[in-house]
Every structure is written in C-alpha cells, then in structure tokens.
Write a protein that binds this DNA or RNA. Structure first.
Lengths: 206, 206
DNA sequence: TTGATTTAAATAACAGTGTTAAGTATATTT
DNA sequence: AAATATACTTAACACTGTTATTTAAATCAA
C-alpha cells in the first residue's frame, strides 16, 4: 500500500518542517518570540495545523530541547580524546561553560525553562537527557578517583552534582545578566577565573 | 498647602496599594500569572491607572525585586551572630539555599528573570542589591582568610563568586525541576548533601 | 462509478496579555 | 466664571495559546 506510506512520509516531513522553522525562529529571535502563529506563517500553514502534529507548545519545545541536548553532547564529545582523567574533567567543564555562553537560548531551554519538563511530565516520562548528562560527569569523576585525583571515599554522584551545580551556577548567572554589575570588566573572564579557582579546589582536595 | 500634601500622600498610598496587591498575586499565583489587569481588578482601578504610577511592568517587577532583596537580607541576617568566621560563611550558604527553596518566586525574580534588570538598565542604574549581596559574601571570605580558614593568596571576590555560583547553581537547578530525575529521593537532601560536600572542599583547601 | 467515510487543513472565536491614544469628569487656578 | 491641570477611564491595537466548528479533498466500500 504505497499511498498510506507516502502519507505517513508527508506527515513526518511536515512535522520536521515545523521543527525546522521553530528552531530557526528560536535561534534568531529567542524563546519568547517563538510563537505558534509565527511558525505557522513561515511554514505557510494555519496555526491550528501545528496542533495536529504537537499536542501543545510545550511538546514542541520539548522536541527542540532534545535537539539541543544532541548539540550539547556533540560539543562535549571532543574532550573524550584527552588522555588524563582530571584534565578531561576540567575540559568537560570548560566545554560546558563555552556551550552555555555561546548558545544562550538553547541553554535556557535545557536547564531553566519549565516547558519541556512539563511536556515530559504529561507523558509520564523521565528526563533521560539530564540523566545521561549527569552520568557522563559521574563516570568522569570515577575515572578521576581511579587515577588518584579525587579521594575514593567521595560519593561520585554527589561530586558530579556539585560540579554541575558550579558550572551551571556560573553560566546561569552570566546568561541572566547577574554579572553585569561588575562594570568595565570582561564577564567571560570572570566566569573563567572563577571556574579555574574551583578547579584549584578540586585539585587540592584530599 | 495641606491639599497638595494630602494629594501627594494619596499618590504614595495608591502606589503602595498597587505594590501590595501585585506582591500578593505574585506570591499566591506566581510570576507568570501576575498581570496588570489582575492587579487592576484587585485594587479596583482600571489597568491604565497602574501606568500612571509605573512606567511599565518591568518597573513594577523591579520594585517587587527590591522588596524581595530586603526579605533575603533579613533571612540572612541571623548568621551574623555566629562567632566563628568559617561557620558563619557555611551558615550563610545554608540560609541562602533555604531562602531560595522556600521562596521560589522571589528567588526567580531576584536571580533569573530579566525584567527587573531591564528596568534598571532603562534608568541607567546599577544592580546595587546584587553588589550588596556579593560584598557580603566577599567580606565573609576575608574574615575566613583573616582567621586562617582560607589561604590569603586567594582573590576574595573570585572566591565569593565561586561560592555564590555553587549555591545559586544548586538552588536554580532544583527550582527548575532539574533534580526531578532522581526519582524517589528527597531532593532537598540532595541539595544539602552536595552543599556539605562543597564545604568539605572549602575546609580542606590549602 | 457513485455514495459514505475518513483525513487534513482552515476559519473563527475565546480568553487572555502589555500597552497607548483619546476622552471625561473633577478639582484647582487665574 | 472661564481656563487649566489632574486623575482616571474607555476603547482599541497587536499580540499570545488554544479549541470547536467547518470545509474540502482524498480514500474506501457498494
């Protein structure tokens, strides 16, 4: 039955077109300006058609959220080639910070906005991307422990959450303009200096 | 001239009434539901009257933001009585986290939402509340250095930003439901455990 | 091939948002 | 008493997410 095959293909294509244009608006104009009507204009369909492909706006943002996580993991992947366990962990932190500062809208969607997680909750699904991310950090912490960089008595998961908390805190404060009060200074350098100090603390811990 | 005195008094009173009801809605229903029209309903004036007292919604939110900072500083003030410098710093962290988790809407307004800072920027004003907050942490760090808890070679401000970044990161991730993936566990305890681990790092640093 | 049914999309509307231009009383000043 | 200034309201603009209803086309069954 080739006809229904084609129809299904067309449905997938339209869904992808919606996401593509949604993503374009999202990156060009930011989260707040990404409206159903604006997407509809760009794909040349009526606004209500979008609701035939996504239950609501949250679900649409969840799809963008998942694409953003792929983008993040791709940005983090390069650190895998670093041989030293501790150097790898530090590089992961730097790469995370760099990703966050270079992709503010995506970062907000992944780690601040409630919309995508609400969509997940409606489906009774868990935040797998988040779990995947924390597991990555956790395994790198364990690598450090295996090579004598961090004490083995430390709980690897708690340590991973601490690391995540630190870098997220810095990225989040910066993206939300909470470092603007440090007038006349390079705010990226403030973030870098702070993270470097944190690394000193990590390095010296016994 | 008693009449114009009374008029001025009445203007101040109406402005305070607007803020009072705005705050009530804000705390009861959250940031997103705090609309100009809803405030107008509660004060029994037309929506446009509010614009005679505030330039726009951002300025109104800035006023709430400043009230929230007073609330925060009040919540932090009790740690001043702790004699030990390091104990005081740790208590400050705990008090900050507790405030954030108990006052999510206020916390978001102070450290995440762009609206209040945009209002400040329009007036070419600096974020004094933020400066005041970081100065508090900085002076406590210096107290620790003076009493041998933290090395004197550390930059006190960078250290203060690191501390702020850590607690903000944890509070922010928790408030934004990013710890919900740790199913069946007490999320407040995760935050506490992580902060306690961070304190261990601080304590051991040489 | 014709009639019934399913499918896909659009129109119109609801209820809400921040904001502004214009209008209306009331009170004060000249 | 007339002119002006003050305080406030009405009506509207341009948006938002979302839904019930309707239309048109494609497919299926007789």
């Amino acid at each position: 039955m080739g006809i229904s095959d084609r129809k299904e293909r067309e449905k997938i294509e339209l869904k992808e077109l919606i996401l593509k244009e949604a993503r374009a608006i999202f990156l060009e104009e930011g989260f707040e300006k990404t409206s159903i009507r604006k997407i509809a204009d760009r794909i040349e369909y009526s606004p209500t058609t979008i609701y035939l492909y996504f239950q609501d706006k949250n679900e649409l943002l969840l799809a963008l959220h998942q694409e953003s996580f792929n983008h993040l993991f791709q940005s983090l992947s390069s650190v895998g080639s670093i041989p030293d366990a501790f150097g790898r962990l530090v590089a992961l932190g730097h790469a995370y910070i760099e990703y966050g500062l270079k992709n503010p809208e995506e970062y907000e969607l992944m780690f601040a906005l409630k919309a995508p997680l609400e969509a997940l909750q409606c489906k009774d699904e868990i935040w797998c991307d988040g779990l995947k991310a924390i597991d990555l950090v956790k395994s790198m912490v364990q690598d450090c422990q295996a090579h004598g960089y961090l004490p083995t008595h430390l709980n690897a998961e708690t340590t991973a959450i601490m690391l995540w908390g630190q870098v997220h805190g810095l990225v989040s404060l910066h993206l939300n303009n909470r470092f603007n009060m440090f007038q006349g200074r390079d705010l990226n350098i403030i973030v870098q200096d702070t993270f470097n100090l944190f690394v000193q603390f990590l390095k010296s811990f016994k």
